Simulated scan of single mutants.
Amino acid sequence: MTPQDRAQDVLAPPAKAAIFLTVTIRPGKEREARDALADVAGITRAIGFRIPEAALSCVVGIGAEAWDRLYAAPRPDGLHPFRPLAGEKHVAVSTPGDLLFHLRAGRPDLCFELGRQLMVRLEGLVDAVDEVHGFRYWDERDLLGFVDGTESPTLAAESGLAALVGFDGADPDETYVGASYVIVQKYLHDLDAWERLSVEEQELVVGRRKLSDIELPDSVKPDDSHVALNTITDPDGTERAIVRDNMPFGAVGTGEFGTYFIGYAADPGVTEEMLRNMFLGRTPGRHDRILDFSTAVTGCLFFVPPAAFLEDPDPFLARTPGLSG
């Protein structure tokens, strides 16, 4: 069985609609919550089966503190609470989150129904702490008007290598082959301030042409542009990637507009390095200019176990040294 076969729907193609639902588990409800997670795949199939062309999917992520409460196995190596970052001007906050449900489909009604049924199943067990309904906007653009996710890998081999644990064969005991780590942040945009910039000024902030999406030449692109600070390379020059599935969201009546950042990675350290560059700067004080117009109001890190783990963790516990099912 390949890593893709073992994985949850981490590598699902970008959808037209999504719901990002973050919840905390009530004290004393751990066993019931763990049992409910075993039902997520079945609930998803029951709803998606009626309209298969909409490709409904759900990815479940588990936070560090929740892992300690739910499972006997030690935490996966890269799982820890989201580490806040305090730069000279901007802060990446850490906010509560035990479970993440990333719902995707070609139609928003399927995401809505799946989210509703999941909360019915989890009634009395969890409390919702964040819920964002995302949508595709024009030709894959965010509400700042730029195409988002251009550098996210699209080929199956590249995206698998970037997002799935063990895809490169580096997990010798194969305990969590097909797993992933996901970091999420909800960003709110100051569109009034952003739109006071000229298009040329906006392009220097982002590091790309607004209309064509072509990256600016190095001779023009500022070193504190969003593109420059999110380019991560190994010592040998190999560029490190993550799989993004960011979505715009907004409420026109209240004037709340933003981007929900979600990045899957086999190694969460890659995403964390990008965030350090953004908030702290490669050079102290040279933060990502986009943060002058976009404020992070949430921040969580989750482990996305292989699909089979949620339905029956016992076989995975049996592979863990010192533990048995």
Rank of each mutant, 00 (worst) to 15 (best):
T150D: 04
W194I: 07
R31W: 04
V243E: 09
L125T: 11
R209Y: 09
D312I: 06
L21E: 02
D5L: 15
Y176A: 07
T254I: 11
I51V: 14
F20M: 12
P222S: 10
A105N: 02
H189I: 05
L125M: 14
S219M: 08
S152R: 03
R26I: 03
V182I: 14
Y181H: 15
I183V: 13
D245M: 05
L99W: 02
R34C: 10
F293C: 07
G263F: 10
D223I: 09
H80S: 14
D130L: 12
D236E: 07
F257C: 06
L21N: 06
D213P: 02
E311W: 01
R26N: 03
G78M: 06
D77I: 13
W67N: 02
I242G: 04
D127C: 10
A318V: 10
A72K: 14
E88I: 06
R75S: 08
A38E: 04
D168P: 07
W138K: 14
G281N: 06
D98R: 00
D109V: 10
D192V: 09
S57M: 01
G63N: 06
V184K: 01
R141F: 01
V182P: 00
L155V: 08
F249K: 04
L323T: 07
G269Y: 00
A228W: 06
A228P: 03
K221V: 06
P27G: 05
A54M: 13
V23T: 14
R31T: 15
I242Y: 04
R286L: 08
R83T: 01
L118D: 05
R45T: 11
G258A: 12
S225A: 13
F112V: 11
F261R: 01
G325D: 12
A18F: 04
T283G: 04
S159N: 08
I51T: 13
H287L: 01
A41E: 12
T231S: 11
L85Q: 00
G253H: 14
P313M: 08
L110Q: 09
V297A: 08
G28I: 00
G149T: 07
A18L: 06
N277T: 02
E203N: 14
L70V: 12
